[in-house]
Amino acid sequence: MAKTQPVKLSAADSPVPGDPKARQTGWIRNEIRLLRKNRELLILALPGILFKLVIAYLPMIGLILAFKNFRYDRGIFGSEWVGFRNFEFLFKAEDAYRIIRNTLLYNFAYIITGTIAALLLALLLNELSGRLMKIYQTVLFLPFFLSMVLVGYIGNAFLDFENGFANKVLAFLGFPEHNWYLETTPWMYILPLIALWKGVGFSTLVYYAGMTGISTEYYEAAKLDGATRIQMMARITLPLLKPLVIILFILGLGNIFRGDFGLHYFIPNNVGPNFPTTDIIDTYVYRALTKLGDINSAAAVGFLQSFVGLVTVVSANYIVRRIDRDNALF
């Protein structure tokens, strides 16, 4: 059998070690090879990529309105640059401290209560049989699909002063009735409860999906060692779910400066007396935009919210990387 002679490369064909052009060419060829290898997956992902590009990225051109004095006759690019003057709208407002405080505190409450409740419900679902689990999954997940407008009507059915279910129960028990929409203190508890009821089902299913990926061998070995259900939850399930919890927590921090407009606008019915505990940045800017028509200030606040969210996510991820590199998001 004839021996195959090795192919000899000339000096011109041989890449020079450390040559930037050679490294760049090799990187491009490698990327092209990966694209060809995964072309079917790329075709499947193409509709989602185009949707995200059109809905999320192309509108980002409008962010320059935050730094301009927009005039319709001149257009976006022809309007005058004003620097950071539009950002003064938020910080020089009379209620700036109140709306920023409410936004941050409510978001922290939503993240913490939502995480704890979703983990507990996911652990309970993991202990149920197949038929009961499907029923509870549907019941928990159904509110997630309801619009905030519809949830506002449901809330009004409970909180209406004359015909609301809550006042009827209070009257039956002998307690004084409340005009909920004209009070401030109850909304500190009503809004987190509604947010928990509406969103906990989605988070629960995410954590439950993470639990299904845990190998049953861990639980079988624990049973042989005499571990109880509670011990298996504490020593196996929760530690293995920690990376997922951290990732969702970091992503939740990305919206720490951006409130849930639908929740804080439709549920309290945008009533002035309860603004001290229901008003957030988004509802304040919306009212200012509808009354004053100041597009520049609204764009500036939206840009600021996105920037603060980016800084918060990067900072939280950096802290996680310093503590446990394997559990960081990136």
Results as ranks from 00 to 15, higher is better:
residue 185 T to V: 14
residue 185 T to N: 13
residue 185 T to F: 14
residue 185 T to C: 12
residue 185 T to E: 13
residue 186 P to K: 00
residue 189 Y to S: 13
residue 189 Y to P: 13
residue 191 L to Q: 01
residue 191 L to K: 00
residue 191 L to V: 13
residue 191 L to H: 03
residue 192 P to C: 03
residue 192 P to T: 01
residue 193 L to G: 08
residue 194 I to A: 09
residue 198 K to S: 10
residue 199 G to P: 04
residue 200 V to G: 01
residue 202 F to C: 08
residue 202 F to E: 14
residue 204 T to E: 00
residue 204 T to A: 02
residue 204 T to Y: 01
residue 205 L to V: 03
residue 205 L to F: 02
residue 206 V to M: 10
residue 207 Y to F: 15
residue 208 Y to E: 06
residue 208 Y to T: 11
residue 210 G to H: 00
residue 210 G to A: 05
residue 210 G to D: 03
residue 211 M to G: 08
residue 211 M to Y: 11
residue 212 T to P: 04
residue 212 T to S: 07
residue 213 G to P: 03
residue 213 G to D: 06
residue 213 G to Q: 01
residue 213 G to L: 12
residue 214 I to V: 09
residue 215 S to D: 15
residue 216 T to M: 14
residue 216 T to Y: 12
residue 217 E to S: 09
residue 217 E to V: 07
residue 218 Y to R: 07
residue 219 Y to H: 02
residue 220 E to D: 00
residue 221 A to P: 02
residue 221 A to H: 06
residue 223 K to V: 13
residue 223 K to L: 14
residue 223 K to P: 11
residue 224 L to C: 05
residue 224 L to R: 05
residue 224 L to Y: 03
residue 224 L to P: 05
residue 225 D to M: 07
residue 227 A to F: 06
residue 227 A to L: 04
residue 228 T to A: 04
residue 229 R to W: 01
residue 229 R to M: 09
residue 230 I to P: 13
residue 230 I to S: 14
residue 231 Q to G: 08
residue 231 Q to K: 12
residue 233 M to D: 09
residue 234 A to R: 12
residue 234 A to W: 15
residue 235 R to W: 10
residue 235 R to D: 07
residue 236 I to P: 07
residue 237 T to I: 08
residue 237 T to G: 02
residue 238 L to G: 06
residue 238 L to S: 08
residue 240 L to V: 04
residue 241 L to D: 00
residue 241 L to A: 06
residue 241 L to V: 06
residue 241 L to Q: 00
residue 242 K to H: 12
residue 242 K to P: 07
residue 243 P to M: 06
residue 243 P to Q: 00
residue 243 P to R: 00
residue 244 L to E: 05
residue 244 L to Q: 14
residue 245 V to W: 08
residue 246 I to K: 11
residue 246 I to V: 15
residue 246 I to M: 13
residue 248 L to M: 15
residue 248 L to K: 04
residue 248 L to T: 10
residue 248 L to I: 12
residue 249 F to Y: 10
residue 249 F to H: 08
residue 251 L to H: 06
residue 252 G to H: 10
residue 252 G to K: 10
residue 253 L to F: 09
residue 253 L to G: 14
residue 253 L to H: 08
residue 254 G to T: 09
residue 254 G to V: 13
residue 254 G to R: 11
residue 254 G to K: 10
residue 254 G to E: 06
residue 256 I to Y: 00
residue 257 F to V: 11
residue 257 F to T: 10
residue 258 R to G: 12
residue 258 R to N: 15
residue 258 R to V: 15
residue 259 G to I: 08
residue 260 D to H: 05
residue 260 D to S: 06
residue 260 D to G: 04
residue 260 D to F: 04
residue 261 F to C: 03
residue 261 F to A: 07
residue 262 G to W: 00
residue 264 H to A: 14
residue 264 H to K: 11
residue 264 H to L: 15
residue 265 Y to V: 12
residue 265 Y to C: 12
residue 265 Y to I: 08
residue 266 F to H: 14
residue 267 I to D: 09
residue 267 I to Q: 07
residue 269 N to G: 10
residue 270 N to V: 09
residue 271 V to A: 09
residue 273 P to H: 02
residue 274 N to V: 03
residue 274 N to Y: 13
residue 275 F to I: 02
residue 275 F to T: 02
residue 276 P to Q: 04
residue 276 P to Y: 03
residue 276 P to D: 06
residue 277 T to A: 11
residue 278 T to D: 06
residue 279 D to F: 09
residue 280 I to M: 10
residue 280 I to N: 04
residue 281 I to R: 03
residue 282 D to K: 06
residue 282 D to N: 09
